[in-house]
């Protein structure tokens, strides 16, 4: 099974967009950015296939080009086969981090809880990157998105479901991430997709468990999944290192610069915001313990781990050991 879909050059996407058997399903922002470049494209309404004007019935859809951020791409992945079961799906992210464009996972919120589906049929057929979208990402969005990529790479690397071959690939990827600034940079698109595709071969852990529970519970537009991952990576690493030897053991064995990763995680976090979230973590701790991601953490998360975790969230928590 391939780890990630092949990457199409943007010229190929341009050519596909002008074909009568292609439809473009884009977020409003992406549509505004590309509409003038693709005057003959058939655009689906961003709301989804139910609201879309169908192309002529005599023209079967061969390709769906989906363009948007992670939540949008996940929505397309869940609806694309219903709309055009035989079509190829070319996914174009406008923001990095979720890796939705490359992974076989789709995440959505239902009944106040994060739901996810892992199904190889959800993996897009191909991916394409438009570097111009990186320029539209604000510094705060960029930092959060980088935190999401980092959480995928680190938690996938540590996952108890990861074997040596996967850890070797993720260790190399972590080395690549360390040379990228935690800021807007088009290179994040490709490494972000790779991180998501690789972690999908194993699992994520407590960082994602916290994000999946707190995002719907807090329902704050400023605290989305990516920012929560960015916030919690540093304290979870600190807590892990103080609780278990697995972080030190694996980083040494696979040649990962643990200190550099910890420094980067600290740069991605926001100590004041993190401290303000301690009561929410405590209030929702039982749900965090039950989250599927938490249950595949590299360090066993116990009910009494809460005190040590919140201590690791404090501004003076310092380094991991």
């Amino acid at each position: 099974m391939p780890d990630a879909p092949p990457v199409l050059p943007w010229a190929d996407v341009d050519a596909l967009a002008s074909r009568p058997d292609t439809v473009v399903w884009a977020s409003p922002r992406a549509r505004r950015a590309l509409e003038s470049a693709w005057p003959t494209a058939t655009w689906l309404d961003a709301a989804g296939p139910a609201a879309a004007a169908a192309p002529a019935a005599s023209t079967p859809i061969a390709t769906v080009i989906a363009i948007g951020a992670g939540a949008f791409l996940d929505r397309v992945k869940l609806g694309w086969r219903e709309r055009a079961p035989d079509a190829a799906l070319v996914a174009v992210p406008t923001l990095w981090g979720s890796g939705a464009e490359a992974s076989p996972v789709a995440v959505w919120t239902e009944g106040g809880k994060k739901q996810f589906r892992l199904d190889q049929a959800l993996r897009p057929t191909a991916v394409a990157y438009h570097p111009g979208f990186a320029a539209t990402v604000s510094p705060d969005q960029a930092r959060a998105a980088c935190g999401d990529v980092w959480a995928h790479a680190v938690e996938g690397f540590l996952s108890p479901l990861a074997g040596d071959a996967l850890r070797t690939e993720l260790a190399a990827l972590i080395g690549e991430l360390l040379v990228l600034p935690p800021a807007s940079d088009a290179r994040w698109f490709e490494v972000g997709g790779r991180a998501a595709a690789l972690q999908a071969r194993a699992s994520v852990g407590l960082v994602h468990g916290l994000a999946h529970v707190l995002e719907p519970a807090l329902a704050r537009p400023d605290l989305g999944h990516a920012r929560l991952c960015a916030l919690f990576l540093a304290p979870v690493l600190r807590w892990s290192a103080r609780t278990s030897g697995v972080w030190r053991e694996l980083t040494e064995r696979f040649g990962v610069d643990a200190t550099a990763v910890e420094v980067m995680a600290a740069r991605l976090s926001e100590p004041t915001v993190l401290t303000s979230l301690a009561p929410a973590v405590e209030a929702h701790w039982r749900a965090v313990l039950r989250d599927p991601c938490t249950r595949t953490s590299s360090v066993l998360v116990r009910p009494d781990s809460l005190a040590a975790l919140t201590a690791a969230m404090a501004p003076a928590a310092g380094g991991p050991s």
């Binding site: 108890p160 699992s203 278990s244 599927p292 249950r295 595949t296 953490s297 590299s298 360090v299 066993l300």
Partner: peptide, 13 residues
């Protein structure tokens, strides 16, 4: 299945 993973991690720790 997730409990199996957690139990294995916990036995090791």
């Amino acid at each position: 299945s997730l409990g199996v993973v957690s139990l294995a991690v916990g036995v090791h720790e």
